[in-house]
C-alpha cells in the first residue's frame, strides 16, 4: 500500500466523489420530504421512514413497468445479437454484390443520431399500427450499426484456416457459421450483449414518443412521467429511481469482470 500511497489517495478520493450521489440517494429515500428540503441540509435520516417505497407502488404500476423494461431489453438484446452476428460475418467473410456500398450505408448509420429520424420513424410505426406496443418500441431499433461494425471487426480477427477446413469437409456456409464461427465469436457477442442491455434498459426518447398508456411504459418513461407529476415528492421519486436502477446495478456487480473485459474489447477495435 505504502508504495502507491499517492495513487491510492487520488483514486479513493475520486471514487468516493463518484459514488456519493448514490449514497445520498439511498439515505434520502428514508427521510421525510420535510427533512430533505430543510435548510441547512442533513445527511442522516432522523426517523427511518419506509413510506417512500410504498408510495411508488401506489402511484405507478411499478412491477408492470419493470416487466416491460425486462421484455424490451431481452427482445432487443437477443435480436441484436442474431442480426449483428449474421451481418458482421457476411461483411467480414463473404463476397456479394454491392458489399462496399452496403457497408458504407452501415457506417453512415453509425454517424446519424437516431433521434433525428424520429418524425418519419413515428409515421412508419403508426402506419403499421404498432403504436403503444412492444413491436413499436423494439423493431425500429433492431439494426445496430455499431454492433454490425464491431462483429465484423471481430470476425476479421479470427483465423481463416478453421473455416476452410470445414468447407473442405463439405459444410455449407450456414453450417460453417453456426458450428465453427459462432462459438468462436462468444467474447465479441458477450461484449455486444452487455452494451445492448445497458443502452436498452435506460433508453428514453423513442419509447417516450411511441408509448402513451401507463401499462406499456418501460421504467425509464414511467420514471420521467412520475417525476413530472409528483415533482415535489422527493423521497418517493428517489425511491422509484433507485428501484429502477437496482436490477441493472446488481447485474453489473455480478458480471463485473465480463462487463469490463467486454468494454475494453470494444474499445480496441
Amino acid at each position: 500500500m505504502r508504495k502507491h500511497l499517492g495513487a491510492h489517495l487520488v483514486l479513493l478520493g475520486g471514487g468516493l466523489i463518484m459514488v456519493s450521489p448514490f449514497v445520498y440517494q439511498v439515505l434520502a429515500t428514508f427521510m421525510t420530504n420535510d427533512q430533505i428540503t430543510s435548510v441547512p441540509p442533513t445527511l442522516w435520516p432522523t426517523e427511518w421512514d419506509l413510506g417512500a417505497y410504498a408510495a411508488v407502488f401506489a402511484q405507478i404500476p411499478f412491477l408492470r413497468q419493470l416487466l416491460n423494461t425486462v421484455v424490451i431489453t431481452v427482445l432487443t438484446t437477443v435480436a441484436t445479437l442474431v442480426l449483428c452476428a449474421l451481418g458482421g460475418y457476411a461483411f467480414a467473410r463473404m463476397r456479394f454484390y454491392a458489399k462496399g456500398p452496403l457497408f458504407a450505408l452501415v457506417l453512415t448509420m453509425l454517424m446519424v443520431p437516431g433521434t433525428l429520424l424520429l418524425i418519419p420513424q413515428y409515421q412508419t410505426v403508426q402506419s403499421f399500427g404498432w403504436l403503444d406496443s412492444f413491436a413499436g418500441i423494439v423493431v425500429p431499433g433492431l439494426v445496430n450499426a455499431f454492433g454490425i461494425f464491431m462483429m465484423r471487426q471481430f470476425f476479421l480477427g479470427l483465423p481463416r484456416e478453421l473455416e476452410e477446413a470445414a468447407r473442405l469437409d463439405g459444410a455449407n456456409p450456414g453450417q460453417v457459421f453456426w458450428h465453427v464461427m459462432l462459438p468462436l465469436a462468444r467474447p465479441g457477442l458477450s461484449a455486444l450483449a452487455i452494451l445492448t442491455v445497458m443502452a436498452s434498459w435506460s433508453s428514453l426518447l423513442w419509447p417516450l414518443v411511441v408509448v402513451n398508456s401507463q401499462d406499456m411504459m418501460p421504467l425509464s418513461v414511467g420514471l420521467a412521467s412520475f417525476t413530472g407529476e409528483h415533482g415535489t415528492q422527493f423521497p418517493s421519486m428517489l425511491a422509484a429511481s433507485l428501484m429502477a436502477m437496482l436490477p441493472i446495478v446488481i447485474l453489473f456487480l455480478v458480471m463485473q469482470r465480463r462487463v469490463i473485459e467486454g468494454i475494453a474489447f470494444s474499445g480496441l477495435k
Partner: peptide, 12 residues
C-alpha cells in the same frame, strides 16, 4: 466505483 454511473439510467 468509477464505473457504477455508467450502468445507471440518465433519467434516474
Amino acid at each position: 466505483l468509477y464505473f457504477l454511473p455508467v450502468v445507471t439510467m440518465p433519467v434516474a
